[in-house]
Design a binder for these strands. Sequence first.
RNA 1: GGAGAGAUGGCUGAGCGGUCGAAAGCGGCGGUCUUGAAAACCGUUGAGGGUUCAUAGCCCUCCCUGGGUUCGAAUCCCAGUCUCUCCGCCA
Length: 424
Amino acid sequence: MLDRKALRHDAETIFAQLAARGYTGDLQTFVNLENKRKNLQAEVEQLQNTRNVHSKAIGQAKSKGELADDAMIAMKDVGEQLKQQEKALDIVQGELETLYLSMPNIPHVSVPEGSSEDENKVVRSWGKPTMLDFVPKDHVALGEALGGMDFDAATKISGARFSILQGPLAKLHRVLAQFMLDTHTGQHGYTELVVPYLVSRKSLFGTAQLPKMDEDIFHISGDWDLSLIPTGEVPLTNLYRDNILDTADLPIKLVAHTPCFRSEAGSYGKDTRGMIRQHQFEKVELVQFANPEVSYDALESLTHAAETILQLLELPYQVVSLCKGDMGFASAKTYDLEVWLPGQQMYREISSCSNFESFQARRMQIRHRSKQEKPTFLHTLNGSGLAIGRALVAVLENYQQADGSVRVPSVLQPYMDSDVITVV
RNA sequence: GGAGAGAUGGCUGAGCGGUCGAAAGCGGCGGUCUUGAAAACCGUUGAGGGUUCAUAGCCCUCCCUGGGUUCGAAUCCCAGUCUCUCCGCCA
């Protein structure tokens, strides 16, 4: 949610900034609604003031034992008027609220112009695309040949877009998560949490998954107002909802390994093969609560933390700054990390790191304060560090050998107790 | 599933329908004392909104949420949400 005061003061500029990222809302509609609100609110507050003043006078008269019948009769009328005007104000406030909730975040000045992913900018790359002296297989072919990846059985159990891992591949999956958690807690100063995977609608509103992404979320049925988390960001960021944190305690850095559930409603026919896009996947999520003054430094450090994992795994990748038109609704700036996949001969997203500035904090009422200063909204950030299923895909495809076996990245060897994965 | 208790400021916790935005304590901040610190003492300290150049005034709202009663509600009534305790069931 944007800052209402700022919007009112300079609606024209902000609407232009939003238009640059594809927002189509109408400035005049907003201005008209705000004027209506302003007038109604002034009337209501005037009536409330009248009521307060007279009620107080009645109270004082009564305590002296005087009669105040005339005043009481006159106030009855004020009460009726007030009720009507309050109702009218409520309606306008509701319309405004809906409008505010539908407005995306303002892109940071450093975000590239552009309307689609074609205009995203590569800001740096690490490593060279893996060159193999044989025709590389993709992870599906590798997995099935190795005998530890089964899509048909998963379809039998649950349907499309699920998978089953077995044996060494299941272990590799587990080990990747553990390696990531160990690195972020041990080297990057993140605190590890285990969090709920079912969350309330209020939490989904807080991080702005709702109302926009409703159809992408699995809401559980029955007498429960709960949904499966589409990302660990939701429980982690909502942890401090309605809190006022001490500025001295910032930044607060959290990490959690969670499953994620997405209906992928808008992506029929996209990435239907393999583990790239599933209804259920796991992710190690990084979240930071940052002082607004340094939140862009925090974005760099969070992105670097995620990159570290790829570097330690020796996986080639590039960092992409998403253009205005391709960023998520709540983000002010986003870097995607894209890992090289020899099986697809292209870079694919494996992490997305964003600074939401105060957009989420305002929805969740997360503030910070130092000493006697007024509480102000802090900045929230998050990023995947990394998506585990996709990391597994990247390891398989980049470490494959001509005979179909897969070498184990050296940092994972202590976890795996072996240096190669071969046919079972 | 059965029975009961509760929800008040950063926290703990009082609060006869009318100077209650709310006692007290803790914490925070400022000060006195001290070589320094602690202790003690004194003072100060809720949030949001409207109007405004203003973090100046003035005004409004907020005691879980939503309704209701009333001239007037933290206080009374109704509905809901959440939390806690005990019993049962259970990973």
